[in-house]
Design a protein around this nucleic acid. Structure first.
Length: 784
DNA sequence: TTAGGGTTAG
């Protein structure tokens, strides 16, 4: 019982209730001869189902020919059969109209058949289902369950709970073994752990906790809601398990980030003599894909081949996905070419596989070869570009999609496009998408809202990000976490902590991402004690086991605050082996605080794990430069030249009137390059005229951006972008810059002075956070 | 008289 919360519920059926039920049942029988019923009977011409069918056929014939073929072959087809044979909502509405005209609707059984068709068939239409339900005088439990079931699979599963609550008050029958699987389905869709736990309590109280269907749907619910441990408790304690129970549990492990447990469970099935089915194999392939276990994946594929599984599209897609995720494009291509049936999932999987490996030409070929280029096809390519560091290409495609008339952007397209805008700092394009959302009345759900507020924040408009956050009616953990991340990015630690408290007050349970963001906020604001406390509470209070990135955050918090010894002893006591990121954070702290001895230790540890880490070279050489040890700086440079250290092209970009301009270090490829360098000369003179002397220690230091084969005095990309901003934007406009690495000390001082001398706000986003330069000061208060 | 659970991508 410690597993669930049991709330105050209606009493279980008792013998006295059974008698009461009987009485009510007989009184409800009286309804059959109620005045309404009598009237209906009198109005109803047909007296047999055969006649009803005939009559209905005539109606259909006269109004629309669609159903004629279906019913003409059998005159005796009943109305109920006709409902089952409906192929679209229009046909169903015709029968509905006929039922109303002939008063057949007054028969509850017939009405409930119509309700079922409207609620759950292939021609479902939930608004009509609700309408029909509301017209039934005293809906029985079957009708209530059907409506709950319909909404559980809809885009608005919350309705299932509202209907259920209404049912508890209005229906004379208690929820039964059919009710709960539908409710757990709705809870799974919404991932609302607290509601599911209450329902679990009701199941126990109603003595339904041995029903196989309920327990299987419960495993699925806990698995979908991020609680594989609770799913496993249900699974372990259930008296009898069938293949569905095993499948649900395998899937719960895979979904819960425990793919190795999913694979072990599959192996255990054999020892328990449970025969796996197609769904088992799909779930196991999904676990292999999540574990990047190509060997096991290949073994599963041969198992499928050797055990006579019939050709199945979903199974083929799962194999395809496994090959792609495990990095074997050759296997994936072979399978894809062999597949007779392909759907949008097959095409998208193979397309994304090519794009992830950077084979954009092949990805485009796949896109061009797709038989139906609907929205999904466009989304596949746009998201492939966006998620693989090609935001400019993603936005170009998004633009092309607007021009093509075969597909309209949907929520996913817009999310991808917003993410691309955020990466580029393209605020004008991002704002245009916001207007598009409003103009087309697109529902601002939590996914879209999260992308929108993230875009505004990353493009430097905190007010708009906040406004979007406040406009979201139902804020889930992702929306809250995203807003906390925004506050972290802007160095507003206190505001992030306030948001965290508010989300707890709203009963939103923080997840691992929330903690990464809140620890990051503490880090950027120097809130050492608060960060340490939250980290200590993660497991005992919130049930979240700290992962490696949480450890990195806490080391960063200590290190940035200069508590190097504390950080070092923390690393020593870590229960998991320190990774390169851990040593990188520690090395950064040593560099900032000039501790040569500890830096050398961290450098050695880091290079053992990542021999080609370019950042490690730069950080250590900065420390040597600061300490005036030029010989060691020179040795490091030589070592770096000789080694195979590779770095991504670091750049700064600036959005001017909707066009994003990119600059590399010492870049002179821009059409306005000459003007930019003239502006930099002017700035330099202006700086000197007020007696500003560049910080030589800064200038002599290496930045990550410096090309080590040349002098380190190259003009950093953000200086070029700022100079371009000054000559190409109105003096009232802020300059918005995005840089893909951390800003160096010299450029930080440069931006502060520009903001003062030119009276310009500069909003600069670096790899980790935002800097708002205004009147000679930075929002980070020089703590970054 | 009616019915229910587990699967693939982005």
């Amino acid at each position: 019982m410690e597993l669930v919360t049991v709330l105050q519920l209606p009493q279980q059926p008792t013998p006295s209730f059974a008698i009461d039920f009987g009485v009510r049942f007989s009184s409800s029988s009286t309804t059959n001869s109620s005045p309404l019923r009598v009237m209906c009977s009198a109005l109803s011409t047909p007296s047999s189902l055969g006649q009803i069918a005939l009559n209905c056929t005539e109606v259909v014939k006269s109004e629309k020919g669609n159903l004629v073929e279906t019913v003409e072959s059998s005159q005796s087809t009943s109305l109920l059969d006709l409902i089952d044979q409906c192929k679209n909502t229009m046909q169903l509405k015709q029968i509905h109209a006929h039922m109303l005209r002939t008063s057949l609707f007054c028969d509850q059984y017939t009405a409930s058949k119509l309700l079922t068709a409207y609620a759950i068939s292939s021609c479902s239409c939930l608004i009509y289902a609700k309408n029909v339900f509301d017209q039934i005088p005293q809906p029985n439990l079957y009708c209530w369950n059907t409506l709950i079931r319909g909404y559980a699979s809809s885009s608005d599963p919350t309705q299932s709970f509202l209907i259920f609550l209404h049912m508890l008050h209005s229906c004379s029958e208690f929820p039964n073994k059919f009710t709960f699987p539908f409710l757990f389905k709705a809870a799974s869709q919404l991932k609302v752990l607290h509601i599911g736990k209450v329902l679990h309590g009701m199941v126990i109280k109603a003595s339904l906790d041995s029903d196989l269907f309920i327990l299987n749907s419960l495993i699925n619910f806990y698995g979908s809601s991020g609680a594989p441990d609770l799913a496993h408790k249900v699974f372990t304690n259930m008296p009898g398990k069938d293949v569905v129970s095993w499948n649900a549990m395998i899937n719960a492990f895979a979904l819960g980030g425990l793919p190795e447990k999913a694979l072990l469970l599959f192996q255990e099935m054999e020892t328990k003599d449970v025969t796996p089915n197609v769904i088992t194999m799909v779930s196991v392939l999904s676990a292999c894909a999540k574990k990047f276990d190509l060997d096991f994946g290949r073994w599963i594929c041969s198992y499928i081949e050797n055990n006579g599984f019939a050709e199945n599209l979903i199974l083929n897609n799962a194999m395809l996905d496994m090959y792609v995720k495990c990095g074997s494009m050759n296997d994936a291509k072979d399978l894809f070419n062999k597949m007779i049936d392909k759907d949008i999932v097959s095409w998208t999987t193979i397309l994304d596989g090519h794009a992830k490996l950077g084979n954009y030409d092949e990805a485009h070929c796949i896109f061009d070869a797709m038989p139906h280029k609907g929205t999904s096809a466009w989304n596949a390519l746009i998201s492939a570009y966006e998620q693989n560091g090609k935001p400019r290409e993603a936005l170009t495609l998004f633009y092309e999609m607007q021009l093509s008339k075969d597909a309209k952007p949907d929520e996913i397209t817009l999310i991808c496009a917003l993410c691309a805008c955020a990466q580029l700092g393209a605020i004008d394009f991002g704002h245009w998408i916001h207007v598009y959302i409003k103009k087309h009345d697109i529902n601002l759900n939590s996914h879209l809202a999260t992308s929108l507020l993230d875009m505004y924040a990353k493009c430097g408009d905190l007010d708009k990000a906040m406004a979007v956050f406040q406009s979201v009616e139902r804020k889930d953990v992702y929306v809250w976490s995203a807003m906390i991340a925004v506050m972290a990015m802007y160095g507003r630690g206190k505001a992030a902590l306030d948001l965290f408290s508010s989300m707890l007050e709203y009963n939103i349970k923080p997840n691992a991402v929330t903690f990464t963001n809140i620890l990051c906020a503490c880090n950027h604001a120097g809130l050492v004690n608060e960060g340490e406390q939250l980290f200590k509470q993660m497991e005992p209070v919130y049930g979240i086991v700290p992962q490696i990135h949480h450890y990195v955050c806490i080391i960063d918090i200590f290190g940035r605050a200069g508590l190097l010894e504390k950080a070092a002893s923390f690393i020593e006591k870590m229960p998991i082996p320190p990774t390169a990121a851990v040593w990188g954070a520690f090395l950064g702290a040593c560099s900032r605080h000039g501790n040569v001895e500890l830096a050398e230790l961290a450098y050695q540890k880091l290079l053992q794990l990542e021999p080609c880490n370019h950042g490690a070279f730069v950080l250590l050489s900065n420390i040597y430069a600061k300490a005036g040890n030029w010989e060691k700086v020179s040795n490091l440079r030589k070592l770096m030249r000789d080694s195979d250290v590779k770095k991504e092209p670091w750049c700064s970009s600036i959005d001017v009137n909707g066009i994003v301009h990119e600059f590399l270090v010492g870049d002179n490829s821009h059409p306005f390059s000459q003007k930019i360098y003239l502006k930099l000369d002017e700035i330099s003179e202006k700086f000197m005229s007020i007696g500003y002397k560049p910080d030589m220690s800064n200038l002599l230091q290496l930045s990550e951006e410096d090309n080590l084969t040349e002098q380190s005095l190259n003009v950093h990309s953000e200086k070029l972008a700022i100079a371009f901003g000054l000559i190409s934007t109105a003096s009232s406009q802020p300059i918005r810059i995005v840089k893909n690495i951390r800003i160096c000390g010299d450029c930080h001082a440069f931006a502060k002075l520009i903001s003062q001398l030119y009276d310009r706000d500069i909003l600069l986003r670096d790899r980790y956070r935002f800097h708002h330069f205004k009147g000679g000061k930075c929002s980070c208060l020089d703590y970054w």
